[in-house]
Design a protein around this nucleic acid. Sequence first.
DNA 1: ACCCCCATGTAAACGGTTACATGATTTC
DNA 2: GAAATCATGTAACCGTTTACATGGGGGT
Lengths: 195, 195
Amino acid sequence: MREASTRYVLLGVLATAGPLTGFDIRAFLDHSVSYFWRESYGQIYPELKRLADEGLIEDASPGAGAREARPWRITRAGRAALKAWLDRPPQPAPVRDELLLKLFFSRHAPSAAARALIARAKDSAEARGVEFEAAEAQVLSEPEDPDLLGSLLTLERGRIMARAQQEWCARAAAFVEAWESGGAEALIRRWRKKT
Amino acid sequence: MREASTRYVLLGVLATAGPLTGFDIRAFLDHSVSYFWRESYGQIYPELKRLADEGLIEDASPGAGAREARPWRITRAGRAALKAWLDRPPQPAPVRDELLLKLFFSRHAPSAAARALIARAKDSAEARGVEFEAAEAQVLSEPEDPDLLGSLLTLERGRIMARAQQEWCARAAAFVEAWESGGAEALIRRWRKKT
DNA sequence: ACCCCCATGTAAACGGTTACATGATTTC
DNA sequence: GAAATCATGTAACCGTTTACATGGGGGT
């Protein structure tokens, strides 16, 4: 059975950014890791309750009313649980790529469809590349940030992957063109030409 | 609301590989697209029934018993639905990367943890790179395959992404080392050195 | 007689999103 | 005092995996 990561995200955020409310945890996630992780309130609030029950977090301002801001603080047990999780290798995630699926089946549609899919992927990869570069510049402008390493590692991954995606898009477009104009032989010839 | 792709995978497989049973559809998926798409029986059988109800597939050997092999054939309506789906741009998938999450929070664990995560990622990326190259060689040895283009496009994506992941791993390891030895300044210096 | 593979199917549980209900606090 | 924003929470629904139940057919 796969173990859900939600609880550890919450612990991680509370460890990094001090006592926070569920609302603020979500805002923090949106501003930091949103390009590779998101959580919804429907996940956050019940999980916070569970973490509190298990003593991994504690109410940072007890005695607050029912509908008031309720900041949570990570406990020592919580930090230990977080550390243990950080030490475990990530679990294999089910990969599902709709774009690849469509390209794999693309011979059942006019080839314009495949070309359009690739062109679109290229555009979005380029946009993402620009975003990541901007985000890196932003991060590097604050060298005092204790999370500098974590931010840079993750942003760099995004940037490199976006560039690789662009590279693949160019090659994929060339493949489709070769296949269109000269069938299997032309495709194979095109494939042999690296780059 | 996101639209589920499962039905279109089934239609796509039936369009490519003729009448197949639910069992064989799964086998086909396992042997072709398993590195970017999987389906479980719990998804396949109920969905086949729904597709049949909607007239997108039909029983290819009616009159078979209850527990007998029941191959399905795609109908003309089914092909139309598949084509329409192939023409639509892929829906944005929720990205969730546990490795990045752990690296982002890695300052809350001894830095050996981050190094281990990266080393492991590097190993698996190298293994995947080899697998993709082998699979490409395999596909290219059968130039008559009508799915040659689709196979090559998707395998090439896997290969390029695996290589990019290796590149990032090398850079990430260097980042951690720089941070360890010289803090923010060293890290930034290392970052400026492209490659 | 036994086992393995082919094959269909379902129930339960899970992780997750969406939509909604509710109300406190701040700002204009 | 109206509107926007901060904030908590839950119910319904969805897609998916897992585990299980069932049984036919072929090989040894």
